[in-house]
Design a protein around this nucleic acid. Structure first.
Lengths: 83, 83
DNA sequence: TTGACATATAGATATATATCTATACATTGA
DNA sequence: TCAATGTATAGATATATATCTATATGTCAA
Protein backbone atom coordinates (compact mmCIF):
# COMPACT_ATOMS: atom_id res chain seq x y z
CA UNK A 1 0.00 0.00 0.00
CA UNK A 2 2.74 2.46 0.97
CA UNK A 3 4.64 1.45 -2.13
CA UNK A 4 1.68 2.58 -4.22
CA UNK A 5 1.58 5.96 -2.53
CA UNK A 6 5.32 6.27 -2.95
CA UNK A 7 5.14 6.82 -6.68
CA UNK A 8 4.50 10.39 -7.87
CA UNK A 9 1.96 9.55 -10.57
CA UNK A 10 0.09 7.12 -8.36
CA UNK A 11 0.04 9.63 -5.55
CA UNK A 12 -1.41 12.21 -7.91
CA UNK A 13 -4.08 9.77 -9.01
CA UNK A 14 -4.95 8.98 -5.42
CA UNK A 15 -5.10 12.63 -4.46
CA UNK A 16 -7.31 13.37 -7.43
CA UNK A 17 -9.71 10.59 -6.53
CA UNK A 18 -9.66 11.58 -2.89
CA UNK A 19 -10.40 15.19 -3.68
CA UNK A 20 -12.88 14.91 -6.54
CA UNK A 21 -14.30 11.42 -6.11
CA UNK A 22 -14.47 8.78 -8.80
CA UNK A 23 -13.16 9.63 -12.24
CA UNK A 24 -12.96 7.85 -15.52
CA UNK A 25 -9.67 7.07 -17.20
CA UNK A 26 -9.86 9.94 -19.68
CA UNK A 27 -10.45 12.49 -16.93
CA UNK A 28 -7.51 11.09 -15.01
CA UNK A 29 -4.97 11.10 -17.78
CA UNK A 30 -6.05 14.48 -19.08
CA UNK A 31 -5.99 16.09 -15.66
CA UNK A 32 -2.56 14.73 -14.92
CA UNK A 33 -1.29 15.25 -18.47
CA UNK A 34 0.03 11.73 -18.83
CA UNK A 35 -0.29 9.08 -21.52
CA UNK A 36 -3.42 7.00 -21.58
CA UNK A 37 -1.43 3.80 -21.36
CA UNK A 38 0.54 5.03 -18.37
CA UNK A 39 -2.65 5.94 -16.54
CA UNK A 40 -4.26 2.65 -17.38
CA UNK A 41 -1.29 0.69 -16.17
CA UNK A 42 -1.04 2.45 -12.83
CA UNK A 43 -4.77 2.20 -12.39
CA UNK A 44 -4.93 -1.52 -12.95
CA UNK A 45 -1.89 -2.03 -10.78
CA UNK A 46 -3.64 -0.26 -7.93
CA UNK A 47 -6.84 -2.12 -8.59
CA UNK A 48 -4.94 -5.39 -8.40
CA UNK A 49 -3.50 -4.36 -5.04
CA UNK A 50 -6.97 -3.55 -3.75
CA UNK A 51 -6.28 0.17 -3.47
CA UNK A 52 -8.82 1.13 -6.11
CA UNK A 53 -12.03 -0.28 -7.53
CA UNK A 54 -13.45 0.27 -10.93
CA UNK A 55 -16.92 0.30 -12.32
CA UNK A 56 -17.80 0.33 -15.97
CA UNK A 57 -20.58 2.56 -17.19
CA UNK A 58 -20.98 2.04 -20.85
CA UNK A 59 -17.79 2.90 -22.57
CA UNK A 60 -16.28 4.54 -19.54
CA UNK A 61 -14.53 2.98 -16.57
CA UNK A 62 -14.70 4.90 -13.33
CA UNK A 63 -12.06 4.41 -10.69
CA UNK A 64 -12.30 5.25 -7.02
CA UNK A 65 -10.43 4.56 -3.80
CA UNK A 66 -11.53 1.35 -2.16
CA UNK A 67 -8.98 1.09 0.61
CA UNK A 68 -9.94 3.32 3.53
CA UNK A 69 -6.40 3.13 4.85
CA UNK A 70 -5.23 5.04 1.81
CA UNK A 71 -7.75 7.78 2.43
CA UNK A 72 -6.71 7.99 6.04
CA UNK A 73 -3.02 8.18 5.32
CA UNK A 74 -3.63 10.85 2.70
CA UNK A 75 -5.76 12.85 5.08
CA UNK A 76 -3.14 12.48 7.76
CA UNK A 77 -0.54 13.81 5.38
CA UNK A 78 -2.75 16.77 4.53
CA UNK A 79 -3.43 17.48 8.17
CA UNK A 80 0.03 17.14 9.62
CA UNK A 81 2.64 17.08 6.93
CA UNK A 82 2.35 20.26 4.96
CA UNK A 83 5.68 21.91 4.30
CA UNK B 1 9.50 10.80 1.88
CA UNK B 2 6.70 8.40 1.01
CA UNK B 3 9.06 6.59 -1.29
CA UNK B 4 11.32 5.93 1.69
CA UNK B 5 8.48 4.49 3.71
CA UNK B 6 7.44 2.40 0.75
CA UNK B 7 10.37 0.05 1.03
CA UNK B 8 10.03 -2.88 3.45
CA UNK B 9 13.50 -2.64 4.98
CA UNK B 10 13.36 1.12 5.31
CA UNK B 11 9.92 0.90 6.87
CA UNK B 12 11.26 -1.59 9.39
CA UNK B 13 14.14 0.71 10.21
CA UNK B 14 11.79 3.63 10.69
CA UNK B 15 9.44 1.62 12.86
CA UNK B 16 12.34 0.43 14.97
CA UNK B 17 13.61 3.96 15.47
CA UNK B 18 10.12 5.23 16.16
CA UNK B 19 9.47 2.55 18.73
CA UNK B 20 12.81 2.27 20.48
CA UNK B 21 14.46 5.60 19.76
CA UNK B 22 17.90 6.09 18.33
CA UNK B 23 19.96 3.02 17.54
CA UNK B 24 23.42 2.40 16.24
CA UNK B 25 24.04 0.58 13.00
CA UNK B 26 24.92 -2.73 14.61
CA UNK B 27 21.73 -2.78 16.64
CA UNK B 28 19.73 -2.02 13.52
CA UNK B 29 21.17 -4.67 11.26
CA UNK B 30 21.16 -7.31 13.96
CA UNK B 31 17.59 -6.59 14.98
CA UNK B 32 16.40 -6.73 11.39
CA UNK B 33 18.71 -9.59 10.45
CA UNK B 34 20.09 -7.87 7.40
CA UNK B 35 23.60 -7.32 6.06
CA UNK B 36 25.64 -4.50 7.53
CA UNK B 37 26.16 -2.96 4.10
CA UNK B 38 22.46 -3.06 3.30
CA UNK B 39 21.61 -1.32 6.54
CA UNK B 40 24.30 1.26 6.05
CA UNK B 41 23.12 2.03 2.53
CA UNK B 42 19.49 2.49 3.46
CA UNK B 43 20.49 4.57 6.46
CA UNK B 44 22.64 6.96 4.50
CA UNK B 45 20.00 7.19 1.79
CA UNK B 46 17.44 8.24 4.37
CA UNK B 47 19.90 10.61 5.98
CA UNK B 48 20.52 12.21 2.60
CA UNK B 49 16.78 12.69 2.15
CA UNK B 50 16.54 14.35 5.54
CA UNK B 51 14.47 11.55 7.03
CA UNK B 52 17.09 10.53 9.55
CA UNK B 53 19.96 12.17 11.37
CA UNK B 54 23.05 10.53 12.69
CA UNK B 55 25.37 11.29 15.51
CA UNK B 56 28.68 9.63 16.10
CA UNK B 57 29.66 8.61 19.59
CA UNK B 58 33.10 7.16 19.48
CA UNK B 59 33.06 4.18 17.26
CA UNK B 60 29.30 4.02 17.00
CA UNK B 61 26.94 5.99 14.82
CA UNK B 62 23.46 6.48 16.17
CA UNK B 63 20.57 7.11 13.83
CA UNK B 64 17.23 8.62 14.67
CA UNK B 65 14.22 10.07 12.89
CA UNK B 66 14.62 13.74 12.11
CA UNK B 67 11.55 14.31 9.98
CA UNK B 68 8.47 14.75 12.15
CA UNK B 69 6.25 14.05 9.18
CA UNK B 70 7.56 10.52 9.10
CA UNK B 71 6.70 10.01 12.74
CA UNK B 72 3.24 11.39 12.16
CA UNK B 73 2.52 9.23 9.16
CA UNK B 74 3.74 6.16 11.01
CA UNK B 75 1.61 6.99 14.01
CA UNK B 76 -1.36 7.57 11.74
CA UNK B 77 -0.83 4.17 10.21
CA UNK B 78 -0.67 2.58 13.63
CA UNK B 79 -3.79 4.36 14.77
CA UNK B 80 -6.02 3.88 11.76
CA UNK B 81 -4.64 1.31 9.43
CA UNK B 82 -4.30 -1.91 11.33
CA UNK B 83 -5.63 -4.88 9.44
C1' DT C 1 51.38 2.56 15.74
C1' DT C 2 48.96 -1.42 15.44
C1' DG C 3 44.94 -4.26 15.98
C1' DA C 4 40.07 -4.61 16.82
C1' DC C 5 35.78 -3.07 16.07
C1' DA C 6 32.08 -0.15 13.81
C1' DT C 7 30.60 2.04 9.79
C1' DA C 8 30.79 3.61 4.95
C1' DT C 9 31.47 3.17 0.18
C1' DA C 10 32.83 1.43 -4.59
C1' DG C 11 31.79 -1.30 -8.33
C1' DA C 12 29.52 -5.12 -10.36
C1' DT C 13 25.40 -7.39 -10.97
C1' DA C 14 20.60 -8.44 -10.36
C1' DT C 15 16.00 -7.25 -10.08
C1' DA C 16 12.13 -4.48 -10.22
C1' DT C 17 9.62 -0.88 -12.03
C1' DA C 18 8.30 2.47 -15.48
C1' DT C 19 7.63 3.95 -20.02
C1' DC C 20 6.80 3.70 -24.96
C1' DT C 21 4.53 2.19 -29.19
C1' DA C 22 1.45 -0.34 -31.12
C1' DT C 23 -2.47 -2.87 -31.06
C1' DA C 24 -6.32 -5.36 -29.01
C1' DC C 25 -10.69 -5.32 -26.72
C1' DA C 26 -15.23 -3.42 -25.26
C1' DT C 27 -19.29 -0.56 -25.83
C1' DT C 28 -22.42 2.15 -28.20
C1' DG C 29 -24.89 4.42 -31.85
C1' DA C 30 -25.72 5.00 -36.69
C1' DT D 1 -22.20 -4.57 -39.03
C1' DC D 2 -19.19 -0.80 -38.96
C1' DA D 3 -17.06 3.30 -37.19
C1' DA D 4 -16.03 6.00 -33.24
C1' DT D 5 -14.73 6.34 -28.68
C1' DG D 6 -12.76 4.70 -24.34
C1' DT D 7 -9.89 1.43 -22.05
C1' DA D 8 -6.57 -2.44 -21.57
C1' DT D 9 -2.64 -5.04 -22.68
C1' DA D 10 1.62 -7.03 -24.99
C1' DG D 11 6.30 -6.68 -25.83
C1' DA D 12 10.43 -4.06 -26.11
C1' DT D 13 13.29 -0.98 -23.93
C1' DA D 14 14.85 2.19 -20.48
C1' DT D 15 15.63 3.48 -15.94
C1' DA D 16 15.85 3.12 -11.21
C1' DT D 17 16.66 0.64 -7.23
C1' DA D 18 18.52 -3.06 -4.48
C1' DT D 19 21.89 -6.29 -3.33
C1' DC D 20 26.40 -8.48 -3.02
C1' DT D 21 31.33 -8.71 -2.16
C1' DA D 22 35.13 -6.60 -1.09
C1' DT D 23 37.50 -3.03 0.76
C1' DA D 24 38.12 1.54 2.67
C1' DT D 25 37.56 4.68 6.45
C1' DG D 26 37.13 6.19 11.21
C1' DT D 27 37.82 5.57 16.25
C1' DC D 28 39.75 3.91 20.18
C1' DA D 29 42.64 1.34 23.38
C1' DA D 30 46.68 -1.16 24.35
Amino acid sequence: MLKCIGHPIRLQIIELLDRDGEQNVTAIYETLAIEQAVASQHLSLMRDKGILTSRREGVNVYYSISDVRVTRVIECIHDHCQT
